[in-house]
């Protein structure tokens, strides 16, 4: 899948959770959303992107993706 497409989708999710004043909750919300709705190959790819120092994700999204990576639940 195209990275650009995944980045855009992930940032759209981030934009929704961005208004949450509690940052930890926002990050957890994004992480849960990716887990619940993204098929594993999409999650793997966005994790790869972050791990290869991709910079186009919103900070809270990148953090959520790093948390996903740490769980290795794929």
């Amino acid at each position: 899948m195209e990275n650009q497409n995944l980045i855009k989708m992930a940032n759209n999710i981030g934009a929704f959770f961005n208004s949450e004043p509690d940052k930890a909750q926002a990050v957890a919300g994004i992480e849960q959303h990716l887990k619940s709705f993204w098929e594993p190959r999409m999650r793997r790819q966005i994790i790869d992107y972050v791990q290869q120092d991709g910079t186009e994700l919103m900070a809270i999204v990148a953090e959520a993706v790093r948390n996903l990576a740490a769980q290795r639940s794929l």
């Binding site: 899948m1 195209e2 619940s36 993204w38 098929e39 190959r41």
Partner: peptide, 18 residues
């Protein structure tokens, strides 16, 4: 136990060959 592909994701996955 993992979610599958949604329709637009299916198209993207078709294009990348998986």
């Amino acid at each position: 136990s993992e979610p599958g592909l949604r329709i637009p994701n299916m198209f993207s996955a078709a294009i990348d060959g998986s």
